[in-house]
């Protein structure tokens, strides 16, 4: 081995040493306004992580029973709920679900060019498998006017659109980055949503909440226009064979996992293919290295 190689090897060892010394808790200790958000052990985290199908099914139930009254999921179609890698509900039940979905699909204009019926209601039809999972509001203005001026965002991409910032001194920051790359940490958004749903607390002394606002430890600024959606005891009663008992934490974890799937439905396929690709590359790299050594053994260099 050349000196260079030894130096690189030593540097790598040092790095790994630093990473193991760093405990995740003190690593991003919050300073000042920084909000501390725990990392949660998701089933889909890391290199081997995959979605837990029963959990996705429970999560859909929480979404349907609680969140859907304010939030849409418009980037998903009903058919996605039956596809591999997701909750994988039977197609027939998804069809029925779509048919009974409260938020209908606009069906105008009809042959006569009308967009409303005799009563002045918009022409609508029941959703099909291929239709988007719409929320209750026709547009953002309607959503705002029903929610004290606040907009409940569409949740299709929410776990990708949020993250947890690292607040740490620079050398820890760099170490955390390195560790996250080595561990394949991509669940910041899910960690945030879970922390948000379980983060409702009484406002501390001296904090004046505005009209219609709730106190939440995870939300930036701590005042959120969404009232606590899942109460302490949990909001949704799971069926006996659902694999978990209801509670705030369980409901929150399940719906967050479901939203993570909604934002990244190809995760299972991606990681499965990823391992094959890595394996192929690794073997080829080793073979190429050996070939290179044989070729270069002919010259002094």
């Amino acid at each position: 081995m050349s000196k260079q190689a030894i130096a690189i090897f030593a540097a790598l060892l040092g790095l790994i040493g630093c990473l193991t010394v760093l405990k995740s808790s003190d690593a991003y200790a919050a300073g000042g306004e920084a909000i501390h958000i725990e990392r949660h052990p998701w089933s889909f985290a890391g290199f081997f992580g995959q979605y837990d199908k029963p959990q996705l099914r429970r999560g859909w139930q929480v979404y349907q029973d609680v969140c859907a009254s304010c939030h849409g999921l418009k980037r998903l179609s009903f058919r996605n709920l039956a596809e591999p890698g997701g909750p994988e509900f039977p197609v027939e039940s998804v069809k029925a679900l779509a048919k009974n979905w409260d938020n209908k699909i606009f069906a105008g204009p009809n042959e006569d060019g009308e967009i409303v019926d005799e009563d002045g209601e918009l022409l609508v039809r029941d959703p099909l498998l291929s239709d988007p999972i719409l929320g209750p509001y026709a547009n953002d203005n309607a959503a705002r006017s029903a929610n004290n001026g606040a907009l409940p965002p569409d949740l299709s991409l929410i776990t990708k659109a949020r993250g947890i910032p690292t607040h740490a001194i620079w050398y820890k920051h760099v170490a955390i980055m390195a560790r996250d790359i080595v561990n394949g940490y991509q669940e910041g958004g899910a960690d945030y949503v879970y922390a948000l749903l379980t983060g409702y607390k009484d406002a501390p002394e001296g904090v004046q909440l505005s009209e219609g606002m709730s106190y939440n430890v995870a939300f930036p600024g701590h005042q959120i226009a969404m009232a606590q959606p899942i109460p302490e005891g949990g909001a949704v009663e799971y069926q006996k064979n659902a694999g978990a008992k209801t509670s705030l934490h369980q409901n929150a974890e399940d719906v967050t996992a479901f939203l993570a799937w909604a934002a990244d439905p190809s995760l299972d396929a991606r990681k499965n293919l990823g391992w094959l690709v890595m394996l192929y590359l690794l073997i080829t790299t080793v073979l190429l290295y050996l070939g290179k050594r044989v070729i270069w053994s002919r010259v002094k260099h």
Binding site: L157, A161, Q186, A263, G274
Partner: peptide
């Protein structure tokens, strides 16, 4: 490949999913 398959969003910013 490590990034493409296991950390595809690591190098981007979450806000770009809004």
């Amino acid at each position: 490949a490590w990034f493409v398959f296991f950390l595809p969003d690591y190098l981007g910013h979450p806000d770009n999913y809004n």
